[in-house]
Amino acid sequence: MAKVKYYYDSEKLAYQKIRTRKTKKFGFLMLFLLASALFGFLSFIVLLNTPYFETPKDRLQAREIENLKLNYAILDKKMEQVADVVDDIEDRDNNVYRVYFNTAAIPEEKRKEGFTLKNRYKALEGYNNSQLVVNSTKKMDVLSKELAIQSQSLDEILKLAKAKSNLLAAIPAIQPVRNENLKRMASGFGYRTDPFTKVRKMHEGMDFTATIGTPIYATGDGVVERADNTASGFGNHIVIRHGYGYETLYGHLSKYKCRAGQHVKRGDIIGYVGSTGRSEGPHLHYEVHKDGNVVNPLNFYYGNISAIEYVAISKLANQENQSLD
């Protein structure tokens, strides 16, 4: 029951009951309700910003954040594994491939340059997990740069390999006449007695004696520059330009099996042994030229003879005898 309040009326000399108007009561009630609502709202806001009160949305966001952290950790581990593989490829690139092709290694600084700038990842700072994001982004950038440089390096190695392959195929690396078809190795490279003048002179090739019609093989890949008998002394002869400064000559043929301008491969039959031109008997006169200079053909027979055969033919080639042309 509400407490009744009184006041003293001096005119009537008596206590009178205090009567509160209804509108005033209603105003007090509304003020109380408003204050209660405001207090409740402020309390709710405070609770929302404390770790002791979580909404379903907060719990969902917390789980998503944990999942993102886990995914970043997995991604980071995978990037470390990829980095290990890239390091292994870089090591082989510098110490195997580039050494084989006599090419300078790519410095480590070049592969990783540009990632020491302080402000490179400034836009990623200032967040709750900035360090995690910055580290992952930096690793990904470093890997991307290393892979780009390694890709360029492997393209370069591929070009070098193709050039090396072409060079190896072009070098005149086999005998022009097979051993089983030889009667003997008549004369080697060096000073020999001329069969016609009997004067000691430089013999710029090797003479292989064989029966007329014995196949003659291209000793390296190349293009037939000439197949005619216009050069003095060689009779029917062939000249093959191999590239890389190499050129070979095959003289005294009985007939051709190629023509000028034709591409030939090492081991292709290009003609047959004869005795045309300035010749003392059926044989092949064979020369190797490198950068315009005659060189000893014996240095190039590593493609189809054994070590024992090489020693035997070397002894014969170094004997100072009479040449056949």
Rank of each mutant, 00 (worst) to 15 (best):
I238D: 07
Y246T: 11
I212A: 10
T211G: 06
G245E: 10
D228N: 15
S254A: 13
A218L: 02
S232F: 03
R226I: 14
T230Q: 12
G220A: 08
T219C: 07
H237M: 11
N229E: 13
K257Y: 14
G243P: 11
I212D: 09
G243V: 05
R241P: 00
A218C: 08
P215V: 10
D228S: 13
I240F: 08
Y246M: 13
E247H: 00
R259Q: 14
V264L: 04
Y217F: 14
I216C: 04
T214R: 03
E225C: 02
G261S: 06
P215F: 09
H263P: 14
A231T: 11
G220W: 06
V264P: 10
T230E: 13
V264I: 12
S232C: 00
A231M: 13
Q262E: 15
G261R: 05
G220L: 11
V223I: 15
T214Y: 03
G251E: 03
V223T: 15
Y244N: 13
A210I: 01
G251D: 05
L249G: 01
N229P: 00
C258T: 15
D228V: 09
Y256Q: 07
T211A: 11
H252S: 12
R259I: 13
P215I: 10
G233K: 11
A218K: 03
Y246D: 12
T248E: 03
A210D: 02
V239D: 04
C258N: 05
R226L: 15
T211S: 12
V223S: 09
D221C: 02
Y250R: 02
Y256L: 03
N236G: 05
Y256G: 04
